[in-house]
């Protein structure tokens, strides 16, 4: 099958990639662009580890055909830090021990980032709902919810 030229806007940068029509966004991000922060967990849309933002909304990169998000603004965990400084959410996950093994963390943070952009000061129910599609096998979730709440409280 011939490859096609895809133009993807990832973390504010335009990338031209020769990809198959059936390429998945998670594979393009990790293998073609080297953005391995986005994790491949269940690889079937059940665990949320591959959550990225598309036009600010959370999306599962393992279920997203790369060709279907051409021209949209894609953001991954690598796009959050500014000049080497962690974002408020990353800092909060670091300080509040929201991360243990770290595998679910990029997906958790991107899902939480989508929430805080839409709802800057969420209550606990809103945080739980926003993270309902993200599985963690280490923390029991309490520290993750605390981290998101801390990041929200640190906001003006």
């Amino acid at each position: 099958m011939p490859k096609r030229l895809l133009t993807l806007a990832v973390n504010g940068r335009r990338h031209e990639i020769a990809a198959d029509g059936h390429a998945l966004l998670v594979d393009v991000l990790r293998d073609a662009l080297g953005l391995t922060g986005t994790k491949q967990g269940c690889d079937g849309g059940e665990c949320g580890a591959c959550t990225v933002l598309v036009d600010g909304a959370p999306r599962l990169a393992c279920l997203t055909l790369a060709a279907s998000v051409e021209g949209r603004a894609i953001e991954t965990i690598e796009g959050l830090a500014r000049s080497g400084r962690m974002s408020a959410l990353q800092q909060a996950f670091h300080e509040r021990l929201g991360t243990q093994c770290g595998f679910c963390t990029p997906g958790m943070i991107m899902a939480a980032e989508a929430l805080l952009r839409r709802t800057p000061h969420p209550d606990e129910a809103e945080i739980r709902e926003a993270l309902a599609g993200n599985l963690c096998r280490c923390t029991g979730y309490v520290k993750i919810i605390e981290s998101v709440r801390a990041a929200a409280e640190a906001r003006p």
């Binding site: 849309g45 598309v54 959370p58 999306r59 989508a114 709902e129 309902a132």
Partner: peptide
């Protein structure tokens, strides 16, 4: 339905 990342797609 499902989770937030499914619902936005």
């Amino acid at each position: 339905v499902a989770g937030p990342a499914h619902r936005s797609a």
